[in-house]
Design a protein around this nucleic acid. Sequence first.
DNA 1: ATGAAAGCGCTAACAC
DNA 2: GTGTTAGCGCTTTCAT
Lengths: 334, 334
Amino acid sequence: MKKRILISDIAKALGVSVTTVSFILNDKAKEKRISESLTKRVLDYVKKVGYKPNELAKSLRTGKTKIIGLIIEDISNPFFGNIARLIETKVYEQGYRIIYCSTNNDSEKTKELIGMFNDRQVDGFIITPSEGIEETISNLLQSNVPVVLFDRYLPDVETDYVIADNFQGAFDATVHFNEQGYKRIGLVSLYSDQTQMRDRLDGYMKGMDQFKKQVYIKKIQLDASEAEAIDDLHEFVVDNRLDAVLFATNYLAITGLKSGKKHNYKLPALIAFDDHTVFKLHEPAITVVSQPIEEIADHIINILLLKLQGKAKSIKHLTLPCELKIRESSILKQ
Amino acid sequence: MKKRILISDIAKALGVSVTTVSFILNDKAKEKRISESLTKRVLDYVKKVGYKPNELAKSLRTGKTKIIGLIIEDISNPFFGNIARLIETKVYEQGYRIIYCSTNNDSEKTKELIGMFNDRQVDGFIITPSEGIEETISNLLQSNVPVVLFDRYLPDVETDYVIADNFQGAFDATVHFNEQGYKRIGLVSLYSDQTQMRDRLDGYMKGMDQFKKQVYIKKIQLDASEAEAIDDLHEFVVDNRLDAVLFATNYLAITGLKSGKKHNYKLPALIAFDDHTVFKLHEPAITVVSQPIEEIADHIINILLLKLQGKAKSIKHLTLPCELKIRESSILKQ
DNA sequence: ATGAAAGCGCTAACAC
DNA sequence: GTGTTAGCGCTTTCAT
């Protein structure tokens, strides 16, 4: 059981005061005009004995933890996983650390997680908001805690957010289907009023309207079992004799693929929102509406860091363009 | 800017001392024989004003953070992601929280993360050790910090671990290939001395020896680019005219599938270690050696909780059986 | 049964 | 330039 070395131990050993050591350790040696020789002596000693400050005590004193709470829908979804990874590395360079948790889009769990992170005094939040947490977020903002939302936003809460242009993404996909000559084009989405879902729906509608086509829309319950969803999708495609389907999320599309496999029917042309390994490997490879993950992560961090430094002048609403990555699944075979 | 309410505010408002409030809040009312009426009065008031203790101060005082550090190879790999999720929920019920980070099997990063978590005073660690961190782990153990390793272990460090029976898993897969009548069965693994890789290799060897078959082994560099690996695998399969391949990890198998797609050659029969959505959806569906994820998570937590409570009597080495989930990719077509 | 006060390890205002 | 010390919010010993 190695005993942890304290700042007072260092002060004692070197015959100086804790203040001096503290100043030196916090890069205030210059500012406080502490002699270079002493500075060096302290730093050398610190390195030699491997002193590590107690971050808890530091945080308690300064009120800053240098930790950012990342609250996302589902860490095992590669879309979120990748953004989390990017955020983690970028923020690391700035001396911040990330703690993250998945909400599974459950608003109770989200509220609880926000509360828990707040208890742990995180310096700021990055959140994919689930529905019904407007008040929780407002409280955060009132307490002056920096918050950046992403992937979706809360129309009734005035806060910064970074999202993809979901409307345009869905619109482009729908137009692409139409241009390929598909006749009966459906959309699979969720029973959810979240903005990203609403915008994707709107984009699809607009695209269909433009070609004066009838829309076919299937919404899945957020809490439906996968087995149910698989059967529902089969029915949706077959009953409506669809020749093309746009899926509003990557996991819906995966469910669609499973449905094809289970019920052994010929899948229509497909486009999915958000890329996934499965889509690249699938035979045929699946066309996707891909969000600019790296840019999203960059913007989230930039905004948050500004807020953490108190330098944010105004509230930022960023909408970044999506890219339609055309692969085999949406090309009409003659 | 809502002001945070403190324990002293409560004491003042109710005309009692902070000690009393603290006792009540920490479920010591009975023990300290505080009157039921007062207890109730305090609890009601606490609820009314929504008091939340400052966890930092608490931790500083008690030396316990109720946080467990989970350090795993790659959070975006569903095998690890799922275990993380299970551990998170199970530990949550016990009042512990998890903070996690990915090492990407980089030993420097692992060491740094362990150090960082230690600075933040996590109460215990759950780690998939990368190579070369024996000393770091030993230091942890010397400082009496509870540590449980999983997925692999460090032969030179005497600590608890929970792993799958990798030898048996690989052996069963190899036997299955042989029984199906495959002639030229290869193994794709990594240049890594980690125990799980070594055991899978041994299991394959043993299985091949039993049938007196020649082994074909391809090892990929840990840091090889995916593009290189794709080409290497193509070469390996084609040059050796393999009709069956066992992949030592799920991502190696995915690379194998990509290789088939890129080079457009007929894939041999396949078995992968650790399941993945891709494998279920693939045409043909891919046979896997599946680890008992839930049991692994359970055992990790049980051991860790015992250690956290100081009740661990002895060091536990647990090896749980793998299951061969036979799907289409390993069935010999006549 | 309840309260006063020390102290966890650190930072920083203030004193010299 | 450097040291003394209060205090961040909490738990817990000791006293009453």
